[in-house]
Design a protein around this nucleic acid. Structure first.
Length: 418
RNA sequence: CGGGGUGUAGCAUAGUGGUAGUGUACGCGGUUUGGGACCGUGUGGUCCGGGUUCGAUUCCCGGCUCCCCGACCA
């Protein structure tokens, strides 16, 4: 991508009303645009980050048997009345809207009811189970207070997987597999070291659920962590949790702020019974399906990555989610010979499959370097009159600041993917 | 939803009951070119409604907006 073609621009200063670090940097770098409180546009660079995050999630969900679907955001009241979650006394985050033809619809804040209803069509025997369906799409929650930049918005990206099992054993096996997949996802996103599978409230369905909490000062949650033992407990269940059962003592736990980047729930048969999703066992009995739900917020993960990994100069993307692998910074572009030369390097990188953002703008070096730091691609390659003369390219690793000088052949060998 | 703030140009800010200033960004001309250069010049602004007043961006009332704290957060 030629940067001169990118319609977004960087800014030196963040808007005064944006306090959250994630949103300040993402706004300044032109990854997101704020439309209103709790609603952001993902601009070209930002959307690429989201899509890369989604790709990581997809790969891990597919690997444990997930099958992707896309469901409507418009939901009829009928199903929600069956599960008793339509009433605003019960659920206070509803956005509701009227049909011209009459009747009220809800904007999806979650999809348990809908997917359960869908599965009534496809599940009839124990032979059809287990099955795992997931979606990655926007959900709507009428939060009393949107806050923390892209961390708590009213319209947000959500990956939800729903599991449908015949037996507790099937369910538990998948629940564990999904928990492991989640840790792989967070590791691949570059926040694995700070992310803990955390004991949290199980609500009405089971004793505990699990949250995936990433330790961060910007977090809204409070967890009690034993970094040594890799155990974390949400403060909401600290009192009721049997710590000895978890193999940890209260003294070993430290209070930390954290960001909830994912959660997994056992739902039991609440929804299958309410909506009427049953299977026949080998004796022909109708048995309610055992369900679970497993969520990750891609945008929240994006904000968490920015919060954790950025430095005073700007964003530092892990390679797994960076919109581009290499930021090719062309200097001395007023000299046509140098410009042609740099264009050639760009084309050569592209030909070799290197995902490259090429700063071909007519701007001064200082501005280009500052923008490059702010945008945060993993590697910066500088091409200038000097590099042309010396045949060496300056390659800077954004995360460490390490600088190397590579020949053209070394450069291609270093970055080529095919 | 309770409490506290806020609103001046795309962005960041100053100021005033009497023609609204600066930085940055943007346009044009010129000098520059390895860490957000400089000179000249230009475009562009007081959240909305009402009130007080000869006159309101300023004072008053109402609304809205956005932010923060709390509550809430399958």
């Amino acid at each position: 991508m030629r940067q001169s073609h990118l319609f977004t621009k960087t800014r030196k200063e963040a808007p005064a009303d944006e306090v959250a670090k994630n949103a300040q940097l993402l706004l300044r770098a032109g990854y997101i645009y704020k439309n209103m409180a709790g609603a952001y546009t993902f601009l070209p660079l930002g959307l690429q980050v989201i899509e890369k995050i989604n790709t990581v999630i997809r790969e891990e969900m597919d690997a444990i048997g997930g099958q992707e679907v896309h469901m409507p955001s418009l939901q009829e009241d009928r199903l929600w009345k069956l599960s008793d979650r339509w009433d605003e006394e019960k659920v206070d985050v509803w956005f509701k809207t009227e049909l011209s033809a009459g009747g009220t619809l809800g904007l999806a804040w979650t999809h348990e009811e809908v997917i359960t209803d869908i599965m009534r069509q496809y599940v009839s025997s124990y032979k059809d189970l287990p099955l795992f369906a997931y979606q990655i799409q926007t959900k709507f929650r009428n939060e009393m207070r949107a806050k923390s930049g892209i961390m708590r918005t009213r319209e947000f990206w959500m990956k939800d997987l729903y599991s449908f099992c015949a037996t507790e054993a099937q369910h538990n096996e998948f629940y564990e597999a999904c928990a492991e997949a989640y840790m792989r996802i967070f590791e691949r996103l570059g926040i694995g070291a700070q992310t803990y599978k955390t004991f949290a409230s199980g609500g009405a369905f089971c004793k505990f659920s699990h949250e995936f909490q990433t330790l961060a000062e910007a977090g809204e949650d409070v967890v009690y962590v034993s970094e040594e033992k890799g155990i974390a407990v949400n403060e909401e269940v600290l009192e009721e949790a049997d710590l000895s059962e978890l193999g940890v003592t209260r003294e070993e736990l430290t209070e930390r702020k954290s960001i909830e980047v994912g959660n997994i729930f056992s739902l039991g048969t609440k929804f299958s019974e309410a909506i009427g999703l049953t299977y026949k066992d080998d004796s022909g009995n109708h048995i309610p399906v055992i369900m679970g739900s497993y969520g990750i917020g891609p945008a929240r993960a994006m904000g968490t990555i920015v919060d954790l990994l950025s430095d005073e100069k700007g964003i530092v993307w892990p390679e797994s989610v960076a919109p581009y692998h290499v930021h090719l910074v062309g200097l001395n572009g007023d000299d046509q010979e140098i410009r042609d030369y740099t264009d050639g390097i760009y084309e050569a990188l592209r030909k070799r499959g290197v995902d490259t953002l090429y700063d071909d703008r007519d701007a001064r070096p200082g501005e280009k370097f500052a923008d490059s730091d702010l945008l945060g691609m993993p590697y910066r390659v500088v091409v200038s009159k000097k590099t042309k003369e010396e045949g060496k390219f300056e390659v800077v690793t954004r995360a460490t600041g390490e600088t190397r000088y590579l020949s053209e052949e070394e450069l291609y060998a270093d970055f080529a993917t095919d």
